[in-house]
Amino acid sequence: MDITDITPDQVVFWQWGVFSLNATLLYTWGVMLFLTLGAWCITRRISSDVQIPRWQNLLEIIVAAIDEQIHEVSGEKSGPYLPFIGTIFIFIAVSNLLAVVPGFIPPTGSLSTTTALALAVFVSVPLFGISRQGFGGYLKNYIQPTLFMLPFNIMGEFSRTLALAVRLFGNVMSGVKIGAILLAIAPLFFPIIMQILGLLTGLIQAYIFAILALVYIASATRAHHEKETETFKKGEKTDG
């Protein structure tokens, strides 16, 4: 990958027609393999006792933190959202953290990847909303508070998806590029600081992406949840 290559999609190893094996796909599979093998190695000897292996402890901390975060934001049990939101966070975080490995190109620095993730969020929001509220109930959200808000709501859906994709791409890509540029200008000290900063940025970006996805999904399901809560409170008052 050259400094002029703005995205790893442009690093193509093999191509046949529209099918091409580029760096984005290759490193994505690498991250997938790393995550899957790591999870499998740690969880194949999983223990439910009080004494547990340290790697299992690490995974439990991560999963418990994600679970708690989902619960805090959505106000619901994390069950249906955890695999989706958790995978977004872990994939982006690991991809960004592996950027410190020399020669590794984070797939999150590809606009195709961020777009794919944003599209996944874009599709999942109505799916979760419809699964919770029903088709009609979900669609009613688009005409809230008035029918005139329908175009703006639809535009909002698209714009936030675009913002998701571009924000992540821009941050990761810029971080990598700044690192490369600083390496060329001051090869001794600044690249290390920028790499460390890049790790922090990468984790923050993963967190932001996952949280925003969760907020979108939660906003799609919350209306129904709030209605249920209100009904429950009314029922309590009536009973009381």
Binding site: M32, L35, T36, A39, T43, I46, I52
Partner: peptide, 13 residues
């Protein structure tokens, strides 16, 4: 994959 190898076992444990 993560649901099968990570979240399921960890949450189960």
């Amino acid at each position: 994959l993560l649901k099968f190898f990570l979240y399921g076992p960890i949450l189960g444990a």
